[in-house]
């Protein structure tokens, strides 16, 4: 019996998605995707790359080559903290942060992120809160996120929440914008209408 673990690592061209690169490059900020020279500045400047399964440079290379599955399933895109260090340092003026955003949105559209992974949940909770009240309510949003992803953590986070409450840094009530919050919903609906029009 062999204990050596092996895996087939070859990639056949038909396994790749030839339209993936173009669909990302077509979004605002994606225009310079094809100009990458694989220098690795994005990876080394990234404060989170130490945790990533693929460095940002490899994500760019894989996106460009059509490795859609691997890219969307990577933890890299969810670890991006949007600090824009890569965007300002890239010698080819590639807006790496925008590309990471685009990949996150694509992963959510295609529902290929880890179940109970908090980031997409947090993003969606923000969305709901804003739609309702025009504002995001950190406390409530985060509470929902924890309940939906790791209910057991709720206990661990209770202390922090309590401290915030005591110092008046977390409101129990809901912060609402002045004026008519339905304008927000109408605005969002109109965006959908307009986007369909131009497609």
């Amino acid at each position: 019996m062999s204990s050596l673990q092996i895996q087939v690592r070859i990639k056949h061209q038909e396994e790749l998605d030839p339209d993936f690169a173009n669909s990302i490059a077509a979004l605002p900020g994606g225009e310079n995707l094809s100009r990458c020279i694989q220098c690795g500045t994005c990876s080394s400047t990234c404060p989170v790359s130490l945790y990533m399964d693929y460095t940002p440079r490899r994500i760019i290379a894989m996106t460009r080559a059509g490795f859609k599955q691997e890219v969307l399933a990577s933890n890299t895109i969810w670890l991006c903290a949007s600090c824009y260090e890569c965007t300002v340092d890239c010698p080819r003026e590639i807006k790496v942060t925008d590309i990471m955003y685009a990949l996150k949105r694509r992963a959510m559209e295609e529902k290929v992120y880890p179940k109970r992974f908090p980031t997409p949940v947090l993003a969606k909770e923000f969305f709901k809160s804003v739609l309702k009240t025009g504002r995001s309510n950190e406390g409530l949003t985060v509470t929902w996120m924890i309940l939906k992803t790791a209910p057991l953590n709720m206990l661990k986070q209770m202390g922090l929440g309590l401290k915030l409450l005591l110092r008046g840094r977390m409101a129990l009530g809901v912060e609402k914008m002045e004026g008519d919050p339905t304008q927000i919903r109408r605005l969002m609906e109109q965006v959908e209408v307009e986007e369909k029009k131009t497609h």
């Binding site: 690795g40 990876s43 790359s49 130490l50 460095t55 440079r57």
Partner: peptide
Amino acid sequence: IRVEDTLIGVVR
């Protein structure tokens, strides 16, 4: 010196 060793795929 902070750099990605791109042939290895690791930040050094």
